[in-house]
Design a protein around this nucleic acid. Structure first.
Length: 507
RNA sequence: GCUGCUAUAGUGUAGGGGCCAAUCAUGUCGGCCUUUCACGCCGACGACUGGGGUUCAAAUCCCCAUAGCAGCACCA
């Protein structure tokens, strides 16, 4: 199947099984293939490797979904690797929240690995490296080393014999050094044009805080643990952001020293995301100070915040696949995400009236009338909401405020009202049931609620809140996404003594 | 500053010498449908960063410029 180009598949399928064509377009949602991966035809082993410092956000989702896509496409294993080798950047609660977010995204994870379980493996590999003279224990002051590196000069420790390095390394493991005193460095090329490549660190000591999963004090730096694990876990392809390009180059030294075969690497470009807070530390501070209500505050870019607003994981997936793995820097488009989400949510969401900034009117000469508004216009079988008008209604204030020209309104699924003026105040007068007349008069068709049949409702948006009333039956939709007619989609979050709390999703 | 990566419509993307006066999606605008400014349908709008070069032929290859981004941690 994979050997057949996407462009030819539909044609071939048409010849073989025409009845499946419809299914093809329904299930795919999007049709374009991502670029093929080299050496992938016999399956792949890939990984998603977050640092457990907080819940996952949109930035993580890209890496997670891109890798997931290829594992599904080629078959193989998908390893969730928890990179918790920096005690300072480990939030104990994040082990759980990362798992929850991975589940929400629906990743096809086959294995889970915690790097904090593998410290002994890293220690052994480091010992090997020191033994062959590829790494040394450096006792220089970090500032001093930086100067030397910039001057392309080796530090004195570089010349120490392997035996001495091995005993220093053992002393590190025995706890005879404290944080900052020593580091293990790899021997690269001390005059490499990129200073970032010159004898970078492999291990360091961290005395505090205590790691939630281990009592170790010697920790590998990312480039070391990543290299060892990528090899030992048999990773075939690595897809990650281009902020890792330098790391890929650094890891190459390690692969070469160990004599290991490198995986294939793809570095996608930077993705800027506007409108939400993304940095884990920024979010944590905001939550601590009370600026944000929690990790799922609607102003944050965490997956749980998106979920709370009513974004579906499939929409996130489709948006990320649209973006693909290009090396160009891009800006994430909420519009495109919303379009994907709307495609999923629109057929499902029941319709309701929400009247923001309401004003109450007694309609003169109004007959008592029950409106039957469909729960979904494209699916009458779901039934309708019955709203009885006994004369008093609420409508949005700006339906009367702005356009003085309007002389008639159509209350949706009810009847027409004429706008008259008495003593400078608008008055609504019953003007018949004819939809035709309303159309002829170009009367806007607006949402409304019976004055005695309404629930207080706050619609929380990212830019601020909007208060008003909604239909009582919205209380049955807790947790669901509904469409407030003429306003947009919203997820019904809570029903409290004060009324409904709804979260605006998108138009 | 040094090292490296990238550059197609508002946004995302396809195209990797002739099939490109450039694909698809989204968006915007107009129309149709419709008792929502939703959905659906039809149509329109809108881009190859600039300059050199190679070539019969360049969005596509090369060089320079410009711009953006990344890395230069005992973080990941």
């Amino acid at each position: 199947m994979e050997a057949i180009p996407q462009s030819e598949r539909k044609g071939r399928l048409e010849a073989l099984a025409p009845e499946l064509i419809d299914e093809l377009s329904v299930t795919s949602g999007r049709s374009r293939d991502l670029p093929a991966l080299p050496d992938a035809d016999r399956g792949v082993v890939m990984r998603f490797a977050p640092n457990p410092s907080g819940p996952l956000h949109l930035g993580h989702a890209r890496a997670a979904i891109l890798n997931d896509y290829y594992v599904r496409r080629y078959g193989g294993r998908y390893i969730l690797r928890i990179e918790d080798t920096d005690p300072r950047r480990v939030d104990p609660e994040a082990y759980l929240s990362v798992q929850e977010d991975v589940d929400w995204l629906g990743l096809m994870i086959t294995d889970i690995v915690y790097q904090s379980d593998r410290l002994d493996i890293y220690y052994r590999c480091c010992r090997d490296l020191i033994t062959i003279g590829a790494a040394y224990v450096c006792t220089c002051d970090p500032g001093r080393f930086r100067e030397l590196r910039l001057a392309r000069k080796p530090c004195p420790c570089r010349e120490n014999p392997a035996e001495e390095n091995l005993s220093l390394w053992q002393k590190m493991l025995d706890g005879e050094f404290v944080e900052g005193e020593v580091t293990v460095r790899i021997k690269t090329d001390i005059s490499h044009p990129d200073p970032a490549m010159r004898d970078f660190s492999l291990f360091r000591i961290v005395n505090s805080p205590i790691h939630p999963r281990t009592d170790a004090t010697v920790y590998p730096l990312m480039n070391f643990s990543v290299t060892v694990d990528d090899h030992l876990l048999g990773i075939t392809h690595v897809i990650r952001g281009k902020d890792h390009i330098a790391n890929t180059l650094r890891q190459r030294y390690l692969f070469d020293y160990f004599g290991w075969v490198r995986p294939h690497y793809i570095h996608y470009g930077r993705m800027s995301i506007s409108g939400v807070v993304l940095s884990t530390s920024g979010m944590r501070e905001g939550i601590a100070s009370g600026t944000y209500s929690g990790w799922d505050d609607i102003r944050l870019g965490t997956l749980r915040a998106l979920a709370r607003r009513g974004i579906r994981p499939e929409a996130v997936r489709n948006a990320m696949l649209d973006i693909s793995i290009g090396e160009t820097d891009i800006s994430f488009s909420w519009e495109n995400l919303y379009a994907h989400n709307k495609a999923i949510v629109d057929p499902e969401a029941n319709r309701y009236f929400f009247v923001p900034d309401p004003v109450e009117f007694m309609i003169r000469d109004a007959p008592i009338h029950e409106a039957k508004a469909l729960l979904h216009p494209n699916d009458p079988s779901r039934g309708y909401r019955a709203l009885t008008c006994r004369g008093s209604i609420v409508i949005p204030r700006d339906e009367l405020a702005g356009n003085a020209k309007r002389s008639m309104l159509r209350l949706k699924d009810l009847f027409n009202v004429r706008i008259e003026e008495t003593d400078g105040h608008p008055v609504l007068v019953y003007a018949g049931d004819s939809l035709e007349e309303a159309r002829k008069a170009k009367a806007p068709i607006i949402q409304w609620l019976p004055a005695e049949e309404k629930l207080p409702c706050v619609l929380h948006g990212q830019e601020g809140d909007c208060t008003g009333f909604c239909e009582p039956r919205v209380a049955e939709e807790i947790g669901n996404v509904v469409q407030f007619e003429r306003i947009g989609f919203a997820r019904i979050d809570l029903h409290t003594a004060c009324g409904i709390e709804a979260l605006f999703l998108h138009r």
